[in-house]
Design a binder for these strands. Structure first.
Lengths: 203, 203
DNA sequence: ATTTTTTTTAACCAAGTGGTTAAATATTAT
DNA sequence: ATAATATTTAACCACTTGGTTAAAAAAAAT
């Protein structure tokens, strides 16, 4: 395996991520990806047969990166409140590094929902979910938290973690006009966890 | 003004909404919009000069529909908890009718952020926001709710209302596999409002 | 009735797109 | 050194796309 070879492939992937994230599959141009990578257009097809092939590669990585925190949360065997804190921190650290991820994934899934099915070998997901639902129900019966639909709670947690990044282009112009949004998002993880726990905890 | 004329224009707009929402600006095809509307491609250019012209029309309507509830919430002079309930209900009723809206707007804003600036005459937004921030701060000082950054609270509310629709394509395959997501989302408005209030209310 | 507007049809164009190819050159591995 | 691989260049192709046009037909307004 050549050294230059893998280096070039990395350049391509990095550039493809950037362009696809901003323009989407339909809006991205192969020439733009090549320019962004500082290499020739022919090389794109040399390593990745087609635009779709390149996209598939990038998209798969994005989905995994976005869903791994949830899977980890669901599988985590800590105490419930600690699980929630872990997920919030994990999500915020991942999304601070890749703020484009949620928008990119959501949008492309919306464009072609069947694409997601191709990567549902992210299994263990369903079982882990059932496990967490159980755990939440136990917490309710033990009087640790108030009564709430476990799926509702999970959706609330994910919403609070992910949406601020999805909506950043909007909020930074409307809600946070003139302020440093990144700075505001920085320590949000713990505040969000507190917000959730405050809502469900029985004192 | 002809009767048939406006009817056709409505057909076009309805079709354009549908196609743009699913495929985005770059992914949408004029021919597909024409087919969807059941009319000829030439008519699209007859009434709306260009693809961009047609998109602008549809997009502007979408942004307004998406932001009006927030603006209304911010301007609402009811008591805080009632304001929150109003916003949740309002959002859920709008988004149940147009579930595609958030994803569409978020994505296109992400693609070309400058597009949003063109429609920032949705003013009164900033002033209304300041008004609500004040109101939240008063509620804190009066011991009605616990201490919280008002902008954080607003972002939380919007996150909980909007994200479930943005993520529907994902959640219905991962979190709610096999269940009726629309049914689950139906009565969520009040549950979400309760969730928020439970988190901030000082009993 | 006739004038004006709307709609269809269908061919057409220029530009941009993803993708290919072949030959020359540079790089790396043996 | 030599063979194998990686890279560049640049021309090229088939196809799709947004958009135009002109003429005929249909519908509506006067």
């Amino acid at each position: 395996m050549d050294k230059k070879s893998v280096e070039t492939q990395e350049l391509i992937i990095r550039a493809a991520k950037k362009v696809f994230a901003k323009k989407g599959l339909a809006g991205a141009r192969m020439q733009e990806i090549a320019d962004e990578a500082g290499i020739n257009k022919a090389m794109l097809h040399y390593y990745y047969r087609s635009k779709d092939g390149l996209f598939e590669h990038v998209f798969q990585e994005a989905v995994i990166k976005l869903l791994r925190p949830v899977a980890a949360f669901l599988a985590d065997d800590s105490e419930l409140f600690q699980k929630i804190r872990n997920l919030c921190r994990h999500y915020y650290s991942v999304l601070s590094e890749y703020p484009f991820l949620p928008n990119f994934v959501m949008n492309e899934v919306n464009m072609a929902p069947e694409r997601l099915l191709k990567m549902m070998e992210i299994e263990g997901f369903v079982e882990a979910k059932e496990n967490t639902v159980q755990k939440i129900n136990e917490a309710i019966q033990n009087g640790v938290i108030r009564s709430i639909d476990p799926r509702d709670l999970i959706l609330n947690i994910v919403s609070l973690c992910v949406f601020p990044f999805v909506s950043k282009p909007l909020t930074e112009k409307l809600l946070f006009a003139g302020e440093d949004v990144d700075e505001l998002l920085k320590n949000r993880a713990d505040r969000v966890a507190d917000f959730i726990i405050a809502s469900i905890k029985l004192k």
